[in-house]
Structure formats: C-alpha cells, structure tokens
Design a protein around this nucleic acid. Structure first.
Length: 574
RNA sequence: GCCUCUGUAGCUCAGUGGACAGAGCACCGGUCUUCUAAACCGUUGGUCGCAGGUUCGAGUCCUGCCAGGGGCGCCA
C-alpha cells in the first residue's frame, strides 16, 4: 500500500521543477513539500499550502499554485486537483480508486501498510529493564506498553527489531534483596529478628520466605545472603516475565549487567576513556566550588575516579568509580551502550522514566568519550504515571495508595486483575509520552462507551458478527462489485489509507501513542456506518450486499491490524 | 538556582507553521420487528496560562513571566 501524500509530494515536486525549467517559475531550491489531509470538508482529501513557496519565487501564491497544477501528471488515485485561495492545492481522491482499495487491503491482510522506511535496517528497543527486586509496578507498566508498541510500530515500518531487557543485577540493590530474603526466612523459622527499614518491605518476600520454609524447613538456615540472593533474583525475574507475558509482552534478549563485570568490559571502557583524556582521580570534581569542597572534606572521602563529562556539555563531572573501589552504575551503563552501538543497530530506542534524564545524558557523553557516535541512541522519556480514583466528596482525583488492601492498585498484576490486559495496554498507550498519566482505575474498569478499549474492539466484533451470519446463510462475497459501495464506506477507506502516515509519524517521532488515537478515530467513523450500511437485510439487493460484505472484510482487517499494533486482542465476540 | 515536562471546553486529553481549534466523558433530548445498544442521532460548551517577538499565516517556532509535576548524590 502506498502513502498517497508522498506520491502527491513527488508529483508536485516534479511539476514544480518543470515549471522552473519552462521559466514560469524562477529557479530556487525546492523546500519540503508537506501534503496532508485537511480538517474540513470541501477542501479535498489531500492538500498542499503553496503559500510557502511565495518567498522563494517572489510571486503571488495563487499564481505559483496554478503553474504547478497545470503541469501535474495524471495520477490513478486523483479525481480532481484544484487551487483554492490563498494558495492551496487541493486534491480529491478518485472514488473508483478508493473502492478498489477494499481488495487491496484484503490482499495485504495482516501486512496492511507495512512500510519500507526501515527495510534492511536493524532496530533495538530496550524497555522495562526493571531491577529484579520486586514486581512490575504501574510505572514499569507504562514503560512496557510504550516500548512494546514502539517495537511493533518499528516492525510495521520494516525494521528488523530486537526487544531487549537490561537486566540490572549487579548493584547494591541485589545485595539488599538477598539479605532481605535471608532475614524473612529466618523470621519464618521463628527467630525474633529485626527487619531493617531500608530493606525490601514487600509482602512478596515474606511469601517467598514462607515457601522456602515449607520446602526446606531449616535445612538452609546457615546459608549466606548470596544463596538467598540467587533464589530471590530467580523468583523475581520469573514473576516479572510472567506479569509481562500477561499483557503479551516478551523480550528477545536479556542483557546481564553482571556480564559487563565478568568480562572486564567496564574496566576496558574506563581505560579507553582514560586514554582519551576524560578520566582523573580526585576527592572532588574539578569545577567544585568552595562549598562543595568543604562538604566533601567533611565526609572525608578518599579520591574517586571521575569522568570529565563537562567536556561534552555536562554541568558537572561524574564519578565512575567510587572511593571504595566499586563502580557507580553509570560505568556499566556506558559499557552497555557501547556494546549496543557495536552490535550495529541503526536505531537503539531506550524507554526511560524522566527521573533518568540526567543519567541518560551522562551515558551519551560517556559514549562520546569513547569516540563513538551516539546518534543511533534515541530515548523516549515517559512522564510519571499514577493510579488515581475520583473522590466525589472532595471533587478531585486522588492517588491510589500503594498498599495491598483490597481495591488498591500497585502492580501490573493488580491492574490486569481489576481491569484487563487489553484495557491496561490501551490506556497506558493512549497518552503522549510527555504527558503525565493518571490511570483512572474506575474509568478503565467500566465496560461501556466511556471506554475506548471496547469501542475499538467492538468494531472488530461487529464485523465478525456479520461474517458469522453470512456463513450461516451461506452468503459469500464472491464476485463482489465494489462500484456499488457508497459514500459512507468511502469515508472509512479514506481514513484507513492514513494508517501509513500514522505509522511513519509514530516511528520517526518516537510517539507510539499516535496509533491509539488513530484507532479510536477510525472506530468513530466505523460505528455510524455499521448503523446505516447493512449487509444481510431484506431490503438490500444481493449484489449490494456482496459489495458491502467485502467492505466489512477489509474493515475487519484494518481493525485487526490496529489492535495487533497496540498489542491488544481482537475478539470475535464480546 | 540549573535542567526538563505540562498548562487547549465543566473533566480527561488530541492537535505535521496553514483554511472557521477537535475527540471522548459529563449535561440535556431522542433511537432497539432487520447482521446492530459495549452502539447510533441531535443540543450545549473556548481569552489555546499571560505578555512580547518571528512569519503572508502561530495552539504549534523564539524570548520573558506565572502556575504545577519530575530531575539535579562517591544511591540504584
């Protein structure tokens, strides 16, 4: 399927060049030719504002537009091209062409609007990457949904995509996790043991400890924290993957942070940065003011190893190796991203919360300090997400407390249990990454027209209902004459043909939420049609019914495609 | 203080520098003898935070303010 706006852009460009060659328009470097669908009826289906050329041509926009239109080639998808003041070129699509697209959509099926902008290119999406120290939270859930949708959209754009999870298992957190489980286990055995407040408080560790006590009794009483760490880590990781699988998310690859230590990779990276003159040893960073120096002196630090990130525009230098000889987590992070770049991805998308903004900057500086081009690394920063409920008494939304009491929502598992996998996926996706997301749990639970999840899925369900009925009546669309389709169906086809642009924009701007809004808009066009355009009705002539049945077959495929791009299911019944 | 995001209808939010600013919900009023109510039709609703600037044209780009969220550690 071709993106008609791009085809029109090419034709306009050619016509413009021809007009320049003829001397009707002066020579100038032709800028971008943005063709888009106008908002209003009566302005055609695709439109280009030629006013932008006036400053280059030093002519009236209307005259420029006329010179272009005069030289436009005949295009099979175009019915009319008109000039409208103050200088728009408005193009109306051919109805014959649109009707033919019903068969074109059916022919492409699940590959409807698979683009080639990523053909032969490799993309990676690194997402979730939560430490295996607890369950998937509501924040991780947004990350998971956005990352997976991004991956699906990149695939639709033609990229070969790898989904990766950076498995952050080397830090201090994992030590605390191991010790936390060890203490919980000892408590299970009846010991009167104090549980430090900075250890993991979650009940899931108590449950894990209870399981251990049941299985082993006191046989592992004398094992050390590392033993418990391994158990806790494996258990948490299995839980995380189970939770992600419940919303149809699966990573291709898990990259262990520990491997960067075991291979010595982090020290190689540090040495390379040192060779490039970006590393120094000191008790405080080179640009520290008197107050900072006094503060550091008060703490009595030994010298640490610093990265001169200010050389790349950072506001202060960063510690790579702490004075106790252990690396900060930034160093393995830089090593990890070097490895990503060396694996040859054309695009390496990283989905992060905005609380990682500064960190991501430092990693980019670090990659530059290694002499590498960080351009393939693209970060989608997600603003905060919280679960909220409407408080009628106070007349405002309030955050749901992060507790395990009945009715409160804390984890992905909770969200899915109280709503559905599809609802979680849609609502987490249908928000610009730059916007904070209040996940209204009561709204999401509702199975009504207030909920776009079911509104969209119901479009597919309704198509499926027609096919079932047609099968029962042994009515087929063989030999359908698509010329019998009406204006309502054409509205739907026009909108469907915008899918390619939506995918392109979602991919090139790293804004996967666009697909969710498009799906809602398309459903809003579909439902009124379904209400009016009946297939198996006594007053519908058989040849018209055939054409309409074929149309709904195409419509069902479009919705199936959209639902899959969002990682949602396409149910036959509701 | 610095960085960053947000501010658009009563609420939740869309909005490629283009034409008269959109959707859902809420509110009000209608529609199920047909494959159809998780649906459809209609009504109401705006100083696009404020002030400048760039431009033929600004919700969109720039600057400055105001308000709110997040981040700025030898934590991860």
């Amino acid at each position: 399927m071709n993106q008609l706006n791009h085809e029109l852009e090419r034709s306009i460009r050619a016509a413009l060049q021809a007009a320049q060659a003829d001397g009707d328009l002066p020579d100038f470097a032709i800028p971008g030719i943005p063709v888009s669908a106008p908002k209003r009826a009566g302005q055609g289906d695709l439109s280009y504002p030629a006013m932008g050329l006036a400053r280059f041509a030093r002519m009236k926009p209307l005259d420029i537009a006329n010179h272009i239109v005069k030289r436009m080639p005949v295009l099979d998808f175009v019915e009319t091209i008109e000039v409208a003041p103050p200088g728009f070129i408005n193009c109306t699509l051919s109805e014959t062409y649109l009707k033919r697209q019903v068969d074109a959509i059916i022919a492409e099926g699940e590959d409807f609007f698979r683009l080639d902008i990523g053909a032969g290119k490799k993309a990676q999406v690194e997402f979730v990457s939560a430490n295996p120290s607890g369950p998937i939270t509501i924040g991780h859930t947004r990350n998971a949904v956005v990352g997976d949708a991004m991956a699906r959209l990149l695939e639709a754009a033609g990229y070969e995509v790898q989904r990766e999870y950076y498995y952050n298992n080397a830090g201090n957190q994992m030590i605390v996790l191991g010790k936390s489980l060890m203490l919980r286990y000892q408590q299970q055995l009846g010991g009167d043991i104090e549980f430090p407040p900075d250890y993991y408080q979650g009940e899931y560790l108590i449950e894990a400890a209870a399981d251990l006590a049941r299985e082993y009794g006191d046989k592992i009483r004398h094992k050390d924290w590392e033993y418990f760490k391994d158990i806790a880590e494996a258990r948490m990781f299995a839980w995380i993957n189970r939770s992600l699988a419940s919303i149809d998310i699966k990573h291709d690859d898990f990259y262990n942070e520990t491997s960067l230590f075991e291979s010595g990779c982090i020290w190689q990276v540090l040495e390379k940065m040192r060779e490039n003159g970006r590393i120094y040893e000191a008790t405080h960073w080179e640009g520290a003011d008197a107050a900072e120096v006094a503060d550091v002196n008060a703490k009595g630090y030994e010298p640490a190893t610093w990265f001169r990130s200010t050389a790349f525009g950072d506001e202060k230098d960063r510690v790579m190796v702490k004075s106790d000889g252990t690396p900060t987590y930034t160093l393995p992070d830089i090593a990890y991203h070097r490895d990503k770049l060396e694996r040859g991805f054309d695009i390496a998308v990283n989905v992060l919360g905005t609380d990682h903004f500064s960190q991501a900057q430092v990693v980019k500086y670090g990659v530059q300090a290694l002499g590498l081009d960080p351009a393939p690394i693209r970060v989608i920063f997600l603003q905060m997400v919280r679960a909220v409920r409407w408080n009628a008494e106070r007349g405002e939304y309030e955050a749901v407390k992060q507790s395990k009491r009945a009715g409160d929502f804390d984890t992905l598992d909770d969200l899915v249990a109280m709503t559905s996998a599809d609802a979680v996926r849609y609502h987490m996706l249908a928000r610009s990454p730059n916007s904070q997301l209040d996940f209204d749990v009561d709204q999401v639970v509702k199975q009504s027209n207030e909920n776009p999840v079911y509104y969209i899925q119901n479009a597919y369900v309704r198509c499926a209902g027609i096919f079932r009925e047609a099968d029962e009546r042994d009515f087929s669309d063989d030999g359908a004459d698509l010329s019998l389709l009406g204006d309502a169906e054409l509205r739907f086809i026009r909108k469907s043909l915008e899918l390619g642009n939506v995918i392109e924009q979602a991919v090139t701007n790293y804004e996967p939420h666009k697909i969710a809004f498009f799906a809602q808009e398309l459903a809003a066009i579909f439902h009124p049609i379904y209400d009016q355009v009946r297939v198996l009705h006594s007053e519908v002539p058989p040849d018209v019914a055939k054409a309409r049945l074929r149309f709904y077959r195409a419509a069902a495929l479009v919705f199936y495609r959209l639902l899959r791009l969002m990682g949602m299911s396409a149910p036959e019944r509701m």
